[in-house]
């Protein structure tokens, strides 16, 4: 079974809230960061493909993408990093990207090369389910689509149908980035959305403090921590320590 799917199955069984950690490929020693994050309690890793025009990202991940591109990172490094992680670890890996780099690489070619490199799932920020075909699924990859506070009932159903593995709920209207407070409407809204889903649900965007994790851990199947870790990397601190500070 696909590693993403089995992770969420076992999280449900053990009634535990999983932790997904995001890092931008090529912003520092990504393979080492993944090891550190796994040791610090991450259940899965999102590997971000840097893009020149990341419209869904706030300043922290924008800067990381810029650094990674300046380092000469390309989509091929995603596969290199995944293969290196796979030599030592079975942690589920989810490719997180904008559509253009994947289109340019070739959707089929990407799906096959990702699966071959040991990647388990794909999440494309600017690819809504109605524009996606079965390419990734055919290659055995989990496909995650986004839901947002603005999603209507019809869209919740469409996203659920198209997703395999889990659905990613965006906690607030906005871009990625650390926030001191979560959206006050989040918990109520999350319960409504969750009741309509067949798939497990992960919540991301803004989760950067221990109290966020405490608030959410009984409300969803997993949380995603991104900018707080990327900022630690930017400031030459350990992303593993940063993750422990939130979920440890």
């Amino acid at each position: 079974m696909n590693r993403v799917e089995s992770l969420f199955r076992s999280l449900r069984k053990s009634k535990r809230c999983g932790v997904i950690a995001y890092v931008t490929c090529g912003d520092g020693d990504t393979v080492r960061f993944v090891e550190e994050l796994e040791a610090a309690g991450a259940d899965a890793i999102e590997l971000g493909v840097p893009f020149s025009d990341p419209i869904a990202d706030g300043p922290v991940i924008q800067a990381a993408s810029q650094r990674a591109l300046m380092n000469g990172t390309t989509i091929r490094d995603l596969f290199t990093i995944a293969r290196a992680v796979r030599e030592r670890s079975q942690i589920p890996l989810i490719a997180f990207s904008y559509l253009n780099p994947i289109m340019r690489y070739g959707m089929d070619r990407f799906a096959n090369d990702a699966a071959a490199a040991g990647i388990d799932g794909v999440l494309i920020t600017d690819l809504p389910p109605e524009s996606a075909d079965g390419t990734f699924r055919k290659a055995g990859l989990a496909t995650t689509f986004l839901l947002a506070p603005t999603s209507t009932g019809a869209r919740i159903r469409a996203v659920d149908r198209a997703s395999r593995g889990f659905v990613y709920y965006v906690s607030t209207t906005g871009v990625t980035g650390t926030r001191s407070d979560l959206d006050p409407a989040l918990i109520t809204r999350l319960a409504e959305v969750r009741a309509k889903l067949r798939n497990p649900i992960a919540v991301g965007f803004g989760i950067s403090r221990r109290e966020h994790y405490e608030l959410l851990r009984d409300q969803c199947d997993a949380i995603v921590v991104g900018s707080a870790l990327v900022r630690a990397i930017e400031e030459k601190r350990s992303p593993g320590e940063a993750l422990r500070g939130i979920v440890g």
């Binding site: 419209i55 869904a56 559509l99 920020t125 600017d126 690819l127 809504p128 109605e130 524009s131 689509f145 986004l146 839901l147 947002a148 506070p149 603005t150 999603s151 209507t152 869209r155 996203v159 965006v170 209207t173 906005g174």
Partner: peptide
């Protein structure tokens, strides 16, 4: 087409 993050789809 319409290739945007989900948050904008309703708008």
């Amino acid at each position: 087409g319409r290739f945007v993050p989900e948050t904008l789809m309703a708008a």
